[in-house]
């Protein structure tokens, strides 16, 4: 990877961090409603994995912590923010909100609030890729908590039997909301759980983006080559709570949080690039300033100034709004 790309990746992660922090601020100002799940701390995973895939070409799907996956997949950040603001210009026209970002124009097929639901949907996207004989793959990002859903086991089994081109990325942040993994899960290493389905898997550091990318490249190549699914586990940590309502102090020791703060992905990559002479402290400072300006002057401005959906459009998008009367009818009776 050349220096320009390395610098770009660092900027992306700084951007993603600021984007999420700005969401937090907007939420506190009541500009964003509903539930809000932030990705801060885990940036290296989505950024690194998708850097090794083909965003816009490959299908990407995830859970409710979905803003950054959507943006890295190619969804315009201003549309993601507008969605959080509940605006007509949002990724989902204001109908989905934070947990349901969609942008099928770049094959980002949604964020889902049902933990574990994206497993089968991802396998279905992969089934379509295989059926149409394209070179696309489906990438499913979910947390460790999702692996305790029945859909995990059902889907791993079918994806393996049918050799579907799907990459399962497990972002193991060790907490299912506030329940630590050892209190909820019999096997702590998540990558071991797919052995029973004959799916190759591995576990990696999710905080060092270079390690994320190195492992992701192998996994993506494996899946794209037609060898079937792969399950990759990244050890990571979210900086904030599960959503906006939980207090991490209740369930996470301060020492643990402090330990992981040292393993912050932006800090790790920034230090590496400084050491390699790619960036200086001054550069990083400037990146942060640029990102802040962009988010404030373009993204937030766009979200603030966009119109809300029209109430007259409440009933749009329930079913096909322009159905073909040949299939729909209605049947005509003679009276």
């Amino acid at each position: 990877m050349d220096k320009a790309d390395q610098k770009r990746l660092l900027r992306e992660m700084i951007f993603f961090r600021r984007f999420e922090e700005r969401c937090f601020e907007a939420y506190m100002e009541h500009k964003i409603g509903g539930f809000l799940h932030l990705y801060a701390g885990q940036e290296a995973v989505a950024t690194g994995v998708l850097e090794m895939a083909r965003p816009g070409h490959d299908y990407v799907i995830t859970g409710y912590r979905d803003h950054i996956h959507a943006i890295k997949a190619g969804a315009p950040a201003r549309e993601v923010m507008a969605e959080l603001y509940g605006k007509e210009t949002g990724s989902s026209r204001g109908r989905g909100g934070s947990m349901h970002i969609f942008d099928p124009t770049v094959n980002f097929m949604g964020g889902y609030a049902l933990v574990g639901q994206p497993f089968p949907l991802a396998a279905g996207l992969a089934l379509a890729c295989k059926h149409k004989k394209t070179d696309q793959i489906a990438i499913c990002f979910l947390g460790d908590g999702a692996n305790n859903q029945g859909t995990f086991h059902e889907t791993m089994n079918m994806a393996s039997v049918w050799k579907l081109p799907v990459l399962f990325v497990c972002e193991n942040n060790q907490y299912a909301i506030g329940t630590r993994i050892d209190r909820s899960t019999a096997v702590l290493d998540q990558y071991k759980r797919v052995c029973g389905y004959n799916i190759p898997s591995s576990q990696h550091d999710g905080q060092d983006i270079e390690q994320v990318m190195e492992a992701a490249k192998k996994a993506v190549d494996h899946v794209r080559s037609g060898k079937g699914p792969y399950f990759i586990e990244y050890m990571t940590y979210r900086t904030r709570g599960h959503s906006m309502s939980d207090k991490t102090a209740v369930y996470r020791p301060k020492e643990e949080e402090a330990k992981w703060a040292e393993r912050d992905p932006i800090r790790i990559y920034g230090a590496k690039l400084k050491k390699a002479g790619v960036v200086t402290d001054e550069d990083i400072k400037k990146l942060k300033k640029d990102v802040q300006d962009e988010i404030e002057n373009d993204i937030i401005k766009f979200a603030e100034e966009s119109p809300a959906p029209r109430v007259e459009d409440l009933n749009r998008y329930v079913l096909d709004d322009n159905p073909d009367p040949r299939w729909i009818g209605p049947l005509q009776n003679t009276y």
């Binding site: 949907l121 396998a123 279905g124 859909t151 089994n157």
Partner: peptide, 21 residues
């Protein structure tokens, strides 16, 4: 022919339908 996994094979069908099937 699917395994006896109604929730997930239905989900696989739905996922496939999102991609044009």
């Amino acid at each position: 022919d699917t395994p006896i996994s109604e929730n997930s094979y239905t989900g696989i069908g739905i996922g496939a339908s999102m991609a044009g099937m």
